[in-house]
Each structure stands twice: as C-alpha cells, then as structure tokens.
Amino acid sequence: MNELTVFLIMVISTLIGGIYLGLLGRGIDRKIAAKFQSRIGPPIRQGFWDLKKLMLKQTIVPENSITWVFKGAPLVALVTSAMLLVYIMVPYLLYLTGYESPMFAHMGDFILVIYLLMIPAIALVAGGFSAGSPLSTIGSQREMVVLMATELPLAVTVIAFAVKMSVLAPSMPSFSIFTAASNPVWNGMGPAGILGVILLASAFLFIIPAETGKIPFDQAEAETEIAEGLLAEYSGKYLAFFQLAEALKSLGVVALVVVLFFPQGVSTIMGGQMIAGGINITVPCEIMFFLLKVSVVYSVSISFIRVSMARLKISQVSKFFIYSVSAVSITGFILIMIDPRIMAM
C-alpha cells in the first residue's frame, strides 16, 4: 500500500473514531461520576443528544463582542483539538499495526504536541475575551493562569522523555511519539528511574484534569462562581464546537498519557502475534486493549478526581502546579537522570 493512502486512512479513521469515542467518553464519564455520587445519571448517549440539540439551537452573538474572534475561536479550538488527536494517534496506530516506513519515523513531535495542547485553550481565552462580558473576561484570565501553571511540569516531562529516548534508542529521533511508543519508558531502568517515571505519571494525573478543565481545575468555567466563565456568552453551534473540541482534547490528552507511559500493546505483553482460528487478530486486539487503557486512565484521572475534590481557588492552582506538581516532575526527571543505567550509557 502506498504510504500516503495508509496515512489518509489512519487520519480519517482517527477523526471519525475520535469524535465518536470522545462523545461516548463524555457519556461514560458522566455515568461513572453519577455512580460515584450514588445517582442514576444521564444516558450514555447524552453527549450526542446535547450536540445535536445545540446544533439546532439559535446562536446568539453578543452585541459588544469582537465578532470575528468570537466566531472564529470555536472553530480554531475544534480544528486544533482534532489535529492534536490525529497527531498523537496516527504514530501510535502505526506502531500498533507494525507498519514501518522512514517517512513516519519523525511523526508526532512532543514539542508540537505541547503547542497543540495550548492552542485550543488559547482559542477559548480569545473567545472569552472577545465576548465582552466581565464574567468571561475573568474566566479567560483564569484559563491563562491555569495554562501557564501547567506548562512547566509538562515541559519537564517531555524533556525527561526526550533524554530517556535518546539513551534507549539513539538511532531514532528523540522527540518523536513513534519512538516513545516503540520503546516503553519503563525499559532499561533501575529502581530510581522507575520511581522517577512513577512521579512523572502522578504529575500527569493532575495535568490531565487541568488541561481538560475539569474539577478541581475548572476555575475558568466555575459554574457557581462566574457562571460558566468564558463559555458564558456562547450558545448554539459555537458552544457545540467548543464541546466537541473539549471531548476531542480530553481523548487526546488521555491518549498521550497512555502512549507515553503505557505504550505496551497486547503483542508485547503476550510475546507474539494473536491468532484465533487461523486469522491474525492482533490489530483489533491491540485497539481494544488501547481503548481499555484509555478508559481506565480517563475514569481515574478525570472522573474519579473530579468527584473526590472541591474546586481550588485560582491562587491555589498556580501554587499547586508551580510548587508541588513541578517539584514532583522535576524530582522525577532528576531520578531518571541519575539512574545508574542511564549514567552508564
């Protein structure tokens, strides 16, 4: 098969699957949260219904808003979120399917992923500022603070991975997701290094809700404080775009964590191809296993954390990330660096 055809198939299937799974994930998340809160909760299909309803609703643009920013922001958020998902998923799918080609070796650069993580948030901020309401302005300011606070631990993690990858697979590009997927970070490491990776993973446990704007880090939306903050003025299809963008971004961030920390596929664990009835079912099994991992990470880092904590204040969020989470991730980074096996190489 032509490389380009494979690439296009993967992108399109990721997009379609991503939208479907993202909305389904929202439904499952709400159901699980409801279960934690001892209630029934909405049907799992609620995400799709919400989207459908919002698309049909009248869209109101505030009079004193900057119209083109206000209208453009949701689209930017949606497109970049979709790009983020594609950018994380395609290299990983390539790795899972075992399709190797020099063209794809550099795919999925960490630095670009960090930027892509930022752009939907910046689009939200721009949309919030342009709406011209004091509540959305406060929401935008808060979103900026959360965005900046999470940058440091995120960057530290990425650098740690790059360093580790350069040691594990010197022949491959260090910043590539493909490399990280094919060389699990847990390999070739002593106890100190493993502890370091665990610390990095636990830092990510809090970065995920912050990136996706969930309690305890939903200050930008904070329903009871600033009435949905930067989404306060959005309605109709623009709100639907933001919701879809958020669903895609949540899936993307969770997928990133899975790819970085738990990339091992079924075949790696079982030590070979999966064959049932003479048919090679490795790829479907790999995808199912991946979805399982995603749902576990999703329900722990998004659903569980969100039901077990109160919303923090914005000053506490910045302190929490700049001091505690950064300290944890830097410690993790140092532990990985001083791991004797890395030192030896």
Binding site: K35, F36, Q37, S38, R39, I40, F304, V307, S308
Partner: peptide, 19 residues
C-alpha cells in the same frame, strides 16, 4: 474518609429512583 465514602457509594445501591 471522603474516598472511602465515595467508594461506598460507587459499589453500594444508588439512592435515586426513576420516576
């Protein structure tokens, strides 16, 4: 205690009822 209560709720009987 919060976590234990949440777990208790997760595995226990839900309190709400369908209309």
């Amino acid at each position: 205690s919060t976590v234990s209560r949440i777990m208790q709720q997760f595995f226990g009987r839900r309190s709400t009822n369908v209309f």
